[in-house]
């Protein structure tokens, strides 16, 4: 029981983290029609910035806030210097150009921070276990991630659905020429959206950093999961990304936790222990294949054009 609740919460936490990453990716795709592979690099930069700033200031929270601002600025600079010129080009061009950016970021990080990973230590008040149910404790930091990510998701929802800027964003997604003709500064809007996406990726990276080590290439594996999520959820749909992210996070975490034991009841011990790791890492992709067979446009396709 204890293990089930704990793994369930772990799955939720991982799913919410994936949502932060997928939301930026799907926003940028939905509005600017840009495939940004370098989104994972922004996630990585968020983690590196946080580790550095936390070490400088000596405070985890201050470091995290500074890192958030730094990734926002980095995203805006990136959009204005390079990615802006890719709008309206072929998707293949996006893939190649942002692939080049990944190479650049990985190497730049190696140059600045060195090849070894960094650690981002947590302050003491975040390491204590918190009782969530009678007799069940859960690490405070993971709980904090869940709360922060849920808050961000709520803010994002309210921001996109209830504010003027959100209205402009949605309008830009459905018809960019028209909103430009109505006198809205599209360039500025795009830059802001990209910066927002970058900050979300950075937030995901800096929150994941204390759980895993901060290292080069950390953004790449998780980026592919984010791709799977937006494909399952339907590209351009934030609601789809949210539900698919929770779903994928749960399946991945629960699969890794319980599949080996389940297999052991069916197969012999040796066969189960060889098949389990491969099978549990395949699980998400199998899920994606099933979704594609049933709904090729994803579960919640955004109604565009």
């Amino acid at each position: 029981m204890l293990l089930v609740v704990e793994q369930f919460l772990n799955g939720l936490q991982f799913g919410l983290l994936l949502f932060l990453l997928a939301a930026g990716l799907t926003l940028v795709f939905g509005i600017m029609d840009l495939v940004n592979l370098a989104h994972g690099s922004l996630y990585m930069m968020g983690a590196y910035f946080a580790a550095t700033f936390a070490a400088w200031t000596g405070s985890f929270l201050l470091g995290a806030l500074l890192a958030l601002g730094a990734t926002l600025v980095l995203g805006i600079v990136l959009e204005m210097s390079a990615l802006r010129h890719l709008y309206g080009r072929d998707h293949l061009d996006h893939v190649l150009a942002t692939f080049g950016l990944i190479l650049f970021f990985n190497e730049a990080v190696r140059l600045v921070w060195g090849p070894a990973g960094l650690a981002l230590p947590l302050p003491a008040w975040l390491t204590v276990p918190v009782p969530i149910l009678p007799g069940i404790h859960y690490p405070a930091y993971r709980l904090a991630i869940i709360i922060v990510a849920l808050l961000v998701a709520l803010l994002l929802y309210v921001g996109v659905m209830r504010t003027r800027i959100g209205m402009l964003i949605r309008a830009g997604a459905s018809n960019r020429e028209m909103i430009g003709a109505l006198g809205i500064n599209i360039k500025l809007l795009y830059t802001l959206v990209f910066g927002l996406g970058a900050a979300l990726a950075g937030l995901a990276g800096l929150m994941q950093a204390p759980i895993l080590t901060v290292q080069i290439g950390m953004g790449e594996n998780i980026l592919i999961l984010a791709f799977v999520i937006i494909v399952i959820g339907g590209i351009g749909s934030i609601r789809g990304a949210f539900l698919a992210a929770i779903f994928v996070g749960m399946i991945d975490t629960l699969g890794r936790a319980f599949l080996p034991n389940l297999l052991r009841q069916v197969l012999s011990g040796a066969a189960a222990s060889t098949a389990a790791p491969a099978l549990s890492s395949m699980l998400i992709y199998l899920l994606m294949a099933i979704v594609l067979v049933v709904r090729p446009e994803g579960l919640f396709p955004a109604n565009r054009r």
Partner: peptide, 30 residues
């Protein structure tokens, strides 16, 4: 499976399946 989709979905799907193959190979202890 992948050809059920097109455009950017196709790019991501083929990427995801290749990544799956990568993880399967990493799991081949033998």
């Amino acid at each position: 499976l992948s050809l059920r989709t097109r455009g950017v979905y196709f790019i991501m799907i083929t990427l995801a399946f290749a990544q799956m193959a990568y993880y399967v190979a990493s799991g081949l202890a033998r």
